[in-house]
Amino acid sequence: MYGYIVKRLLMLLPTLIGAAILVFLLLRLVPGDICLIKFGGEGAYADPEQIKQCQINLGLENPIYVQFWDYMKGFFVLDLGTSMWTGKDVTYEIGVRFELSLQVAIMATLTSIVIAIPLGVISAAKQNTMVDYVVRGFSIAGIAMPSFWLGILMILGLLIGTQEFMGRPWMPPISFKSIFDDPAHNISQLIWPALATGYRYSAVATRMTRSAMLEVLGEDYVRTARAKGLIEKVIVNKHALKNAMLPVVTIIGIEFAFLMGGLVVTEQVFNLNGLGKLFVESVTQSDYTLTQALVMLVVTIFVFMNFVVDVLYAWLDPRIRYS
């Protein structure tokens, strides 16, 4: 087991280094130059001297291999540099927004679990009936509906709903306050994006629950349980559900990792100042240092979640060989 964990950990390294190289290469192909955008943006006159100085300051004048060396060294000494746009530390820029994105991701994951597991179980227990079709339709609709549109509809619904029942329109608060300082304010702001993304991500988990349940319900021991006259409810809830949870846990773990990156669109709709919005901004501003740090953060979270899920899987299911 320990050997397996160490081996899997070592296998993460080439992926992460490969991702770092890919990000570097991708961004160096970007035609935009941050100094031009910063000083020459919106038709303003750009002093060539000023631009040159800016490029020297940011290290953009160095040969590409020097830039690459500085970049790779940064990861190992955990110095991600300063944002080329704001001039503040990248770690500061990310740190300010990390809590918001993490909280939305956690809340969205919880939402998707609450939706997915009951629906998946019902759908499997009533396979090929009307209930099954409705649940499957509901979950496929969740994948089909763009989360930004769902977000717009939610805001619209809130405006109209509060206008009807409270007499004046109410909007979720714009500014972010930590859940530890002002829970009511915090929840009333973040519950909506969490619901919108949670519904979308529940779709995959619902289908996973359904197919895992169907597989388990076809096992011999379930037939035995039926043969000895157990009620169906007990069979489904006690005998089948626990054994069907393994793949569901996996998919939820992997989705959580994707959520951190997938919030890009949702944060835009709800105007949340999180990592997704920061990413869109840094991409449009050609802010290399910030973009590469953000992408690497998302990739690292994703790769590590995968690792944790794999190890959990091997630990929970002894039949899996550590190869």
């Binding site: 992926t15 992460l16 991702a19 990000v23 991708l26 961004l27 192909l29 970007v30 035609p31 935009g32 994707f258 990156g261 997938g262 890009v264 669109v265 990413f279 869109v280 991409v283 449009t284 050609s286 973009t291 992408v295 998302v298 990739v299 994703f302 790769v303």
Partner: peptide, 15 residues
């Protein structure tokens, strides 16, 4: 595969 789809697509669009 370690990149979420939308992140990869955005990075490529920016190029």
């Amino acid at each position: 595969m370690a990149f979420p789809l939308i992140i990869m697509a955005l990075a490529i669009v920016s190029i």
